[in-house]
Design a binder for these strands. Structure first.
Lengths: 247, 247
DNA sequence: CGACGTGTTGAGACTACTCAAACCCTGTGG
DNA sequence: CCACAGGGTTTGAGTAGTCTCAACACGTCG
């Protein structure tokens, strides 16, 4: 009879195998050959699952690792001065958290789990060293950072040019797309974030988020019940998100 | 008597020497040892100066190189859909342009010179290859990208939480700081961008920019005459930029 | 059952936008 | 040398979208 503790340990080890991970086609080692993946897996550290509301790391603490989301979701919140918080990002499975901490060697925001969440910890010094001998890994790292910069620019455009309606529509179509890419339904999903989070992220008051959601519902674009979302007319939603010259 | 053409050629070559460049302490090779810098210089390509209004590259064209600004300034403009342009960044000397094109291998925006501008072209495949053998270069590249991500987050905060006054004040204090770091006066400088550019960047109408500048002037914070700027009270300007709970 | 967190709805206020017109440089051509 | 055109900038008046404040509804958990 096998020792249950060892069995559990082996199971945990197994879970960190990138080769068996369903996200491998989206995650950092995506471009790696099988033999290289072993090296990559060797530097990954397992983390116990985070409970809802738990912090992965806090703003200002020393930067040591980046993290790949394995399951669940997180938000990044930055507190500047004595002002109020700014929610700068939501992270879904396969996405890389913490890359913006490299420069100053401190995390520029607190990252909090929105639900039970598991992550792979990737110590950055080891990752950097490994990226020396694995050009594909290095390339993927450059691409990840570059993509995040592009996404940020898109967000800046949203915040400076789009109306509240367009922002919400963009938020939902973008979420839908991210779920689709990860193999989930693009039409039906559960929001792990509160209305307040959405508002903070999109630069809108909670009330505005709520109002517009109600209107979308009455227009037959979506069916929202609490945090449960059904997208009824993705086409029109995309149209709202991208309509121009509204201002 | 030396051939004037060769002389000119030699002068051009000389200008691309990082070791004699006044920006070396801010630029990409900042962390390199003298012997490594030679290797880095070997991959840099000289570009003829850009005239005001000329494009360094256009949105959607194939990504090949990143560029370090040597003198002058540029703006990055992204056109999405058939909507209007969004100005996503201004680039000053020593800053790196084009990093957001790595991911999709296409430049996500058109970058245009705001005045006569010289840049160093750094072919990315060569840079990537060199970053394999020069850990300091690789680290600096990671840091540059990470910093740009942090700056983007700060911009998102500005766009979603700050009033028009705060945005303008932030814009000026930030410019002032960037000039100071580059050895120019932090109090007196010439804007290379138009009011329209500033408005587009900050998510404000031109008229709003103009109005608030007039008010800042009457409040004794700055003296503005056309594109000539004198910061009279940097302290107060910073205070305006960071005041909280204004909304 | 009551309390709390979360979400919804309503009314009024305010910031920044749009439209419109005037102003001011700079360069150009007579 | 001046008149004039044209872009960029400033100022004014009215409007509209979003915020704030406030009350209320819903659901969950002790």
């Amino acid at each position: 009879m096998p020792d249950p503790a060892t069995g559990r340990r082996r199971a945990l080890l197994n879970e960190t195998r990138c080769q068996t991970c369903s996200l491998s086609s989206l995650c950092l080692p995506l471009a790696l050959e099988v033999q290289d993946m072993d090296q990559f897996e060797a530097i990954i550290r397992r983390r116990p699952p985070l409970k809802k509301g738990e912090a992965l790391f806090r703003q200002g603490t020393h930067f040591t690792s980046v993290f790949a989301v394995r399951s669940g979701s997180l938000k990044q919140v930055t507190t500047e001065g004595s002002g109020e918080d700014q929610l700068t990002n939501f992270y879904l499975p396969s996405e890389l958290v913490g890359l913006d901490g490299i420069d100053e060697e401190r995390y520029p925001g607190t990252v909090v789990a929105l639900e039970t969440t598991t992550v792979c910890e990737i110590p950055f010094d080891r990752l950097d060293a490994l990226s020396e001998s694995l050009p594909e890994l290095r390339g993927q790292l450059y691409r990840s950072m570059s993509k995040e910069m592009r996404d940020d620019r898109r967000m800046m455009r949203l915040l400076s040019r789009k109306t509240a309606d367009q922002r919400l529509a963009t938020f939902f179509t973008s979420l839908s797309d991210r779920f689709r890419r990860r193999g989930y339904s693009p039409y039906s999903f559960r929001l792990s974030m509160s209305r307040a989070d959405i508002g903070n992220y999109l630069g809108l008051a909670v009330e505005t988020v709520s109002r517009i959601l109600s209107r979308f519902q009455s227009q037959g674009l979506v069916a929202v019940s609490g945090r449960e979302v059904n997208i009824l007319d993705l086409e029109s939603l995309i149209e709202v998100a991208e309509q121009e010259g509204c201002r």
